[in-house]
Design a binder for these strands. Sequence first.
RNA 1: UGCCCAGUAGCUCAAUCGGCAGAGCGUCCGGCUCUGGACCGGGAGGCUGGUGGUUCGAAUCCACCCUGGGCAACCA
Length: 593
Amino acid sequence: MIMRDPLLFRIKHAHHYRQGDDWCIYPMYDYAHPLEDAIEDITHSLCTLEFDNNRRVYDWVMEHCLDEEEIPSRPRQYEFNRLNLGYTVMSKTKLGHLIEEELVGGWDDPRLPTLAGLRRRGVPPSAIRSFCREVGVTRSQSRVQIDHFEHALRDDLNPKAPRVMAVLDPLKVVVTNWDAGEVDWIDANHWPRDIDKDETRPVPFTRELYIERDDFREDPPDDFIRLAPGREVRLRHAYFFTCEEVIREEDGTVTELRGTVDPETRGATAPDGRSPEGTLHWVSAVHGVPFEARLYDRLFEVPAPDAREEHFTGFINPDSLNVQRGVLEPAVRDLAADQRVQFERQGYFWPDPDDSTPDALVYNQIVPLRDTWGDEDRLTQAELEQRRREKEERKERQRERSLKGKTDPVENLDDAQQNRFERYHEALGLSRNDAATIAGEDALAGFFDAALEHYDAPKPLANWTVNELLGALKDRTVADLPFGPEAFASLVRLVDTDVISTRGADEVFTELVKNGGSPEAIVDEHDLRQVDDTEALRPTVRAVLDDHPDEVARYRDGKKSLVGFFMGQVMDETNGAANPKLARELLQEELDA
RNA sequence: UGCCCAGUAGCUCAAUCGGCAGAGCGUCCGGCUCUGGACCGGGAGGCUGGUGGUUCGAAUCCACCCUGGGCAACCA
């Protein structure tokens, strides 16, 4: 459609903001794009899917407006699907709307998937690159799950981010068997043992500490492995601690925990070998540095906010930003200002480049740690099962619909074509489908009829016309082919009379489409005459099996589909000349021997 | 309505000329562990959207259909 009357430029007597009134002719996209690419020596011109239609014009302009020698390297346009991410929006318009409506802070809001936003959030460029490598480039429209992105982030950050301890929602703990003035400076490794790095920092242990409020439950569920009344846990890098007393306010909120530490467990290992299930991070209440933590969650509550009938802003997650006032271990002051760190058991963070100052630290959460406990929203086995069922049902519905929608190909034919169809179907005995397919295209039917004059075998000719010729034509017509009905008929005769195999015929046909010529000559030239002699074929079959002992073993072990692989080898070896039926029989014989 | 593109494991993608349907993520189980993290080992998961055809052999070629998306001109 677009090629029927491509529009390349328009004439408009208008003032141009830079060229003034010098020109009254303005190029259209279809004209400017290919020419610019060619002039700039572009080799791969990439664009999004909606320009797929325009590729024909692109090629046409290139061909008709430039001589070969004017094109340093012929540009080719490739289209791809743009990246869609779950639980967010990617289009500039929609992002702009969020900013205009002040639903987010600006283009660099860390909740946004913009480069400015990701950068401010602390996402390293290398993580973005590895994410892109992982998801790949595709022509199918799809939406990438946010999990993939988060995985790429963690994977990138894991070996780069030194571990430190930070409590985001502090709950006070008093160690009753520890003197008020005493400080134990513990040398704690910045890195877990599975990362090949060894740097430590001093962490102060004191009588008063903070732990995460979430890490304590008065009435813990069975699978809760953290702190509860009477229970012992490990304080990371420090001592085993047992909770003995819970202090509450009038309304019942817990304000403080009291308990004791086992002095024998310094370094967080016990001489008697006991090992608590839970390990908690903590920060000294005396040395701890107050800071602000900004936790980011998905911006929208639904996976595809832009694919709904309602306006996408209606799905905004009200809790996408969660600001906490926490305490940090003092050693973070010694880290570089832009150092990305892992707050143990929390996630990866870095200081906000705009708002963080030495006196008022502000940390952005880059990505939380993977958490397999609790009520997060990953798919359970049952949900996976459910999805499988839904997919099956969807397929079943599609099957019904596609069967119901099926039409008789004859319906679309005009009167003359109808007559032709009847001749093909009834007189020549072609299937309804083949007969209608050929009858429906006048040029093709003429070609078929002419070929019939040279080889009177309607069925094989029709098979080749429909299944091979049609595939090679694409948007050309038979008139554009470098060969005529006679050569085509000869080819069909050769394969129909077993002079060549279908595989050999494919080669002949490819050559014919490319350069024309006579099928018989091509057969001789490429030595494609079919080998029907069992004893002539046997050595080849044996050689193939000898060359692939592993595959033979796997075949005998039950992987019968390898027959196809062996067949391919035999056909390759004989350049397509082996009689396939014979080759298969021989293979079976040798393999089952 | 016409034309174009896409449909393969729960998700994102591979599969050279038509010749062994695979990978990563997720999930489940086990191991390790001073992070319920990371790491290591193993398993489950497929009518390649459907029907028919061509072929010794089809995810791949042909016809028709289904589903989703794009384009239909003076925008890019």
